[in-house]
C-alpha cells in the first residue's frame, strides 16, 4: 500500500467522521461525562468511607487525574473501534472488496483506524482542558512538555499494539458467526489488566511485577504514568521495547489466523 493511499484513506475517514456533527459532540460528551461522573462519585465515597487521604499512593485529585488521563488516552489508543471492526467485514461479506482491490486489507483498515483518531484527538483536547480546570491546575504540575512528547510515542505504539491484539479475536469471525462475546471478554481483560478499571498500583506486588512483562498495561497504565511524569528515560525505553515486542508477537498471530481464516472465507452475501 502506497503512503499516498494510506494518507488518502486516513483523510477520507477523518472527513467522514467529522461530518457527523451531532454524534461527534453529543455522544462523546455524554460518554465522557458519564464515565467521569461515575468515577468521581465512586472514589469520593471510597475516600470518605476509608477516612484516608491517600489510597494506593493516590490522593483524591491524583486519582481523578489518573482516570481522566486513562479515559482520554484510551480513546486515542482504541480509536473508534466500530470503524475498524474487522469481524463485521467478514460477517457481512464486505471483506470481499479488499480481496478484489489490489491493496493490503490490514494497512487499509489501520489507515481507517488512524483516520478515526483525528476527531478523537479534538475531543481529547477539549475534554482534557475541561477536566484540567475541574481537577485543578496543581495536580497537573507533573505533566511537562517532555512527558507529553513521550506519551505521544507510547500512545502511537499502544494504538498499533491494541489493533493487532484485537485482530486475531476479530479473525475468529472466519469460523464463528458472532465474535462479540470474545470481543467483550478481551476488552474486559485489557480493562482489568491494563489499568483502565483500577490503577495497577492497587494490585498485589507480585501481580504488578508480572504485568510489567505482559502487553496489557501498555494500553492504558503505562501511557498514563508516562504522561504524569512518573516514568524515567530507561524505564520508558524498556516499556517501549516490551510494547514493541508484543506488537510483533500479535502481528505474527494475526498473520497465522488470517492465513487460515482466508481458506474458510465464503464471501457471504453474493
Amino acid at each position: 500500500m502506497s503512503p499516498r493511499l494510506f494518507l488518502h484513506v486516513l483523510s477520507v475517514e477523518t472527513r467522514k467522521l467529522m461530518s457527523y456533527r451531532v454524534e461527534f459532540w453529543l455522544n462523546t460528551a455524554v460518554g465522557f461525562l458519564a464515565q467521569f461522573g461515575a468515577i468521581y462519585f465512586l472514589w469520593k465515597a471510597m475516600f470518605a468511607e476509608s477516612e484516608h487521604s491517600i489510597i494506593g499512593g493516590y490522593s483524591f485529585d491524583e486519582m481523578l487525574l489518573y482516570y481522566v488521563s486513562a479515559i482520554l488516552l484510551t480513546k486515542l489508543v482504541r480509536g473508534r473501534e466500530r470503524e475498524s471492526a474487522l469481524s463485521q467485514e467478514i460477517y457481512e461479506g464486505s471483506y470481499t472488496r479488499y480481496i478484489i482491490y489490489p491493496t493490503s486489507f490490514f494497512r487499509y483498515k489501520y489507515a481507517q483506524h488512524l483516520g478515526a483518531l483525528a476527531p478523537a484527538s479534538v475531543q481529547v483536547m477539549v475534554f482534557g482542558a475541561a477536566a484540567a480546570v475541574a481537577i485543578g491546575p496543581r495536580t497537573l504540575e507533573t505533566i511537562s512538555m517532555t512527558s507529553v512528547a513521550m506519551t505521544m510515542v507510547i500512545v502511537a505504539i499502544a494504538n498499533l499494539l491494541h489493533f493487532v491484539m484485537k485482530a486475531p479475536v476479530e479473525g475468529v469471525a472466519f469460523w464463528a458467526d458472532n465474535v462479540w462475546s470474545l470481543d467483550v471478554m478481551l476488552r474486559f481483560i485489557i480493562g482489568i489488566l491494563g489499568g483502565a478499571m483500577l490503577p495497577l498500583d492497587l494490585y498485589p506486588t507480585w501481580a504488578q511485577e508480572l504485568l510489567v512483562w505482559l502487553p496489557f498495561q501498555y494500553i492504558t497504565y503505562f501511557p498514563v504514568r508516562v504522561l504524569v511524569g512518573e516514568v524515567g528515560g530507561i524505564d520508558f525505553a524498556i516499556g517501549v521495547a516490551i510494547a514493541l515486542f508484543w506488537t510483533a508477537v500479535f502481528a505474527g498471530v494475526v498473520r497465522i489466523v488470517w492465513k487460515r481464516g482466508d481458506l474458510q472465507y465464503t464471501g457471504v452475501g453474493i
Partner: peptide, 18 residues
C-alpha cells in the same frame, strides 16, 4: 462494494489511489 457513508466521488478517488 462501495463505502456506504461516502459520496461516490470520494469512493472513486480512493479507488484512483488503490
Amino acid at each position: 462494494q462501495l463505502w456506504w457513508d461516502l459520496p461516490a466521488a470520494d469512493c472513486f478517488l480512493v479507488l484512483k489511489e488503490i
